[in-house]
């Protein structure tokens, strides 16, 4: 029988975080489209950013890909294509460590740059600082987990964490499974879930503006004037909808 806290963490928290993510994104899109930006500081400083930002972002994309592979592709599938558990584990560790080093190295450089470059530090808000805590926590914990796993443990998370993650999608969370995993996995999972929850309320929201459609649109964009906005005064005031 799982304890109450286990039920909350592995049965309720994931849904709460995803709900916050979705409603937060909708809310932000409707009410703060203007604030939906990268808030790039490249104009101030470029030398460090040029190295650190691609390191972090590409590293993070690799981390994301690794998580999708590890969590959502069942072990039976990889074994069906002839990938043994040992081979998979070795591949995942190597890949994960490289991606982790890139991501953590990148963000370390970025945080250092943010702190030491006057104009960048000046443009840092309280929201940004809190965001860094939420972002750094799962990254560091995840790296520690991978590192521990690589060096000593050889814990097969694909028989515990992954089935739990998949069980969330059919709304029958296998709480027992997750509750029995090693501590570092559980802490990392909670930190990761919390990160999802805060994304819409921080500058991280720019991840959801990834301009994939750019690849498919014609170069020149033509748009007709909005008939509601002839002249200088818009018809709206006070409480306004996000789409105007």
């Amino acid at each position: 029988m799982p304890s109450l806290i286990d039920v909350f963490l592995w049965g309720a928290l994931p849904y709460m975080c995803v709900a916050l993510l979705v409603t937060g994104l909708v809310w932000r899109y409707r009410y703060d489209r203007f604030g939906w930006t990268t808030r790039s500081s490249e104009l101030y400083e470029k030398r460090v950013l040029r190295l650190a930002s691609p390191m972090f972002h590409f590293g993070l994309l690799a981390v994301l890909a690794g998580h999708i592979l590890g969590l959502f592709v069942p072990m039976s599938w990889t074994q069906a294509v002839g990938l043994s558990e040992a081979a998979y584990s070795w591949m995942a560790m190597t890949f994960g460590l490289v991606a982790g080093v890139l991501t953590l190295g990148g963000i370390a450089l970025l945080v250092w740059r943010r702190r030491t470059t006057g104009p960048v530090f000046l443009a840092t808000t309280v929201n940004d600082k809190i965001m860094y805590l939420f972002l750094l926590a799962p990254l560091c914990l995840g790296f520690v987990t991978t590192f521990m796993n690589a060096s000593t443990l050889h814990y097969n998370y694909r028989t515990s964490v992954s089935p739990w993650a998949r069980s969330l999608f059919v709304f029958q969370p296998d709480i027992e499974l997750m509750a029995r995993t090693p501590l570092e996995y559980r802490v990392h999972a909670v930190a990761g879930l919390l990160l999802f929850a805060v994304v819409p309320f921080t500058r991280l929201v720019h991840a959801y503006a990834a301009p994939v459609h750019y690849l498919f649109r014609p170069y020149i964009v033509y748009r007709a004037r909005d008939p509601r906005f002839v002249g200088t005064a818009g018809p709206h005031r006070g409480w306004q909808r996000g789409d105007i």
Partner: peptide, 30 residues
């Protein structure tokens, strides 16, 4: 500039050809 904008926030107005930035669509990709 319009061609470079990944978000499609920059546009050329059909009526008068003025090139503008839609501030609500710009995501700061630079």
């Amino acid at each position: 500039c319009v061609a470079s904008c990944p978000s499609g926030a920059l546009y050329k107005r059909v009526e008068d050809g003025i090139v503008l930035v839609d501030q609500d669509r710009c995501r700061g990709w630079r």
